[in-house]
């Protein structure tokens, strides 16, 4: 895992279309030629051996699976990297990729502090060398009513929190996105009170589903998706999954978060995906899966209810939305 971290955004035209690599992999599986990967190694990324569990060393435009655990197909790589919200660059989802091209993510460091016993500043090399990267296929449900299925690369946040050891007073985790006005077109537009802030309750942060992601589809994280490291909390609306993190602070009280500050009646601190709590602008009962026509029903907790409901046993989720 001692690889050099590099976050040059991958252009859509450079990426093998999903159906091409899927058929390639199917072909390899059918032929049972494991050594084929070696033959292709000079021009293609390494392939995982058939039937293997998610390969932590995945590289290239690939994922170890074609679907999530519900059988929903992965969203195309081009769509995942071409349709993102990153308002420090622009409010146009399809305009971020181009504007974020020159976003410098190497070198990068993350300061982890606050109510912890071992405060520490990590470089990306520290992070990638220290925490085993694994693939996690998660549904991403944006509060705007669209969704994707994304094969992330990353590691559970609790692995990092265990290392810095939260003190007994720590009850929340606060996250902060980098604010680099000379590289981010709209950072000083006055439209939003940047830096972007987010937060989780400590038990939510410690949950095994909560991921610090450093890549997707086996590639280093593209700038527009939150390079070089971002949070992914799959049972919450996408805005909770803060991008391009520079600071993680353990705190005693619920920290301020950007959307909850801008419009508290629309965006709760918890922001759990909940089809029963409506929003004044977008349908939360249904969603549009990018790449599909029409709408599909939104799942309670984005389909992760079984795993995460123990976190909210005594809470009225209609009030604390």
């Amino acid at each position: 895992m001692d690889k050099k971290y590099c976050s040059v955004p991958v252009q859509p035209q450079e990426v093998t279309p999903k159906h091409v690599y899927q058929s390639r992999r199917k072909f390899l599986k059918q032929m049972g030629v494991l050594g084929m990967g070696a033959l292709l190694a000079s021009c293609a990324p390494k392939l995982p051996s058939p039937g293997s569990s998610p390969d932590p060393n995945l590289m290239g435009d690939q994922s170890s699976n074609f679907t999530d655990e519900l059988g929903d197909a992965l969203t195309a790589y081009e769509a995942i990297i071409g349709y993102t919200n990153f308002y420090e660059f622009t409010t146009s989802k399809e305009g971020v990729a181009e504007l974020a091209e020159n976003f410098v993510t190497d070198p990068w460091s993350i300061e982890v502090g606050g109510l912890v016993k071992n405060p520490r500043t990590y470089s990306m090399d520290d992070i990638l060398g220290h925490f085993t990267q694994q693939e996690r296929i998660y549904r991403m449900r944006c509060v705007e009513g669209w969704s994707m299925v994304i094969p992330w690369l990353g590691f559970p946040l609790h692995a990092l929190l265990d290392e810095v050891v939260p003190t007994e007073d720590a009850r929340y985790v606060a996250f902060e996105t980098a604010l680099v006005p000379d590289q981010m077109n709209a950072a000083e537009s006055g439209m939003f009170p940047f830096p972007y802030l987010e937060g989780l309750r400590l038990d939510e942060a410690m949950h095994d589903l909560t991921l610090l992601a450093t890549g997707l589809y086996g590639e280093p994280m593209p700038a527009q998706n939150g390079a070089p490291i971002r949070l992914v909390v799959p049972w919450k609306y996408g805005f909770k999954s803060i991008k391009s993190i520079v600071r993680i602070n353990l705190v005693a009280d619920q920290p301020p978060t950007l959307w909850n500050t801008v419009a508290p009646h629309e965006y709760g601190f918890y922001a759990n995906v909940n089809p029963d709590v409506s929003h004044p602008r977008w349908s939360q009962a249904t969603e549009r899966r990018i790449g599909e026509s029409g709408r599909r029903a939104t799942l309670f907790m984005n389909g992760y209810a079984e795993e995460v409901m123990p976190l909210y046993e005594d809470m009225d989720l209609d009030v604390l939305f």
């Binding site: 409010t91 705007e144 439209m191 939003f192 009170p193 801008v262 419009a263 629309e266 004044p280 602008r281």
Partner: peptide, 14 residues
């Protein structure tokens, strides 16, 4: 105006 993401009263948004 109402369809824009943000907060109309404080004009936070595009």
């Amino acid at each position: 105006l109402l369809a824009i993401k943000g907060d109309l009263l404080s004009l936070q948004g595009n």
